[in-house]
């Protein structure tokens, strides 16, 4: 395995600003190493000799495709199977029984946002497969959503390394739901087919995803800037059906803005949407960051700030 390429330090801040502009996510101050590690693979894949060459071309030519790839690589999360298991167990023991008791049958749509390489939606599918006797006559539709990325490609393939399957996944789940293929493990067809994956930016228009009975969005909210958090939660709220549920990570809350939800008693990270429809008022001060215009603006702003120097001559 080849090591990480190095990046001119003057570009760190520019890339952090780009990520904030395009995705609303604040990269922490400890991300310098991660930036180099994650972008090295992309630079090699795209045929650049150095990270500086790739980043210079990104800002000099304004390639939207490259910008999205760079930001997606920077945001890729290292996810494990059954991360935050107590939250996922609330799905089986609190949320789905509540929906089931009011409905007895039909379809229950569940979306996992920020699913990265797919462990969370597959965990939900495995969990529901094991609990299928408890919910007869219900068809579950599970959707995993994230930015376009190589992680999402891996999710679709359902193929995991020796190390991936040993972090969080009980051995009985491994032998029940995976087949070994050479050094890797591939999730069995009936679980893979139970999950669909969609490439969508959380800050973009989410209407095409349709409405869901349950939205799972765990451990990602704190990474967003405050204005982006508001926008993300409004977007997620619009996806939840009346009397549907939003599940955040353990210890995560809605920060005093309820977005049309009530907190469940004794379940501080589970929120039930009220029956009446609330009108979501768009905040004109919050940018929609996915189009080329926004990228061009970000690029101009960074140039104005003198952060995009010529690293070769620097």
């Amino acid at each position: 395995m080849r090591g990480a390429l190095s990046l001119n330090p003057t570009y760190y801040e520019a890339l952090k600003r780009l990520t904030l502009e395009l995705a609303g996510v604040n990269l922490g101050s400890d991300h310098a190493f991660l930036i180099e590690t994650r972008l090295s693979a992309l630079a090699r894949q795209e045929g650049y000799d150095s990270l500086d060459d790739m980043v210079e071309e990104l800002f000099n030519t304004g390639q939207n495709r490259l910008a999205v790839q760079v930001v997606s690589s920077l945001l890729e999360r290292d996810t494990h199977f059954y991360t935050d298991r107590p939250s996922l167990e609330k799905l089986e023991h609190v949320v789905i029984p509540a929906i089931y008791s009011s409905r007895k049958g039909g379809k229950i749509r569940i979306v996992s946002f920020g699913c990265s390489s797919g462990q969370e939606p597959y965990c939900i599918a495995m969990m529901l497969d094991k609990a299928s006797d408890k919910f007869p006559d219900v068809k579950f539709e599970i959707v995993g959503v994230d930015y376009p990325s190589t992680a999402l490609d891996r999710a679709r393939a359902g193929r995991y390394t020796h190390f991936d399957v040993q972090r969080g996944l009980p051995i009985r789940d491994l032998i029940t739901y995976f087949d070994r293929k050479a050094e890797d493990w591939i999730i069995k067809d009936h679980i893979r087919q139970a999950v669909k994956f969609e490439e969508t930016h959380l800050l973009s228009n989410l209407d095409s995803l349709g409405e869901f009975d349950i939205v799972v969005f765990r451990n990602a909210l704190p990474h967003y800037s405050s204005p982006a958090q508001v926008r993300v939660l409004r977007g997620l709220s619009s996806l939840v059906k009346p009397l549907g549920y939003l599940l955040l990570g353990t210890d995560e809350t809605l920060n005093h803005i309820n977005y049309g939800f009530d907190t469940l008693a004794r379940q501080p990270n589970v929120f039930r949407k009220r029956e009446e429809k609330i009108e979501i008022i768009e905040d004109p001060n919050i940018k929609k960051p996915t189009d080329r215009k926004t990228f061009e603006k970000a690029k101009r702003r960074l140039k104005d700030m003198g952060e995009l120097g010529n690293s070769k001559s620097a």
């Binding site: 494990h80 020796h162 190390f163 040993q166 972090r167 969080g168 009980p170 051995i171």
Partner: peptide, 18 residues
């Protein structure tokens, strides 16, 4: 539980937790 070699500290911790 069952660990497949090679392993690292994350795997041992995860398996002992499970």
């Amino acid at each position: 539980e069952y660990v497949m070699k090679p392993f690292d500290s994350d795997i041992i911790e995860s398996k002992f937790f499970q």
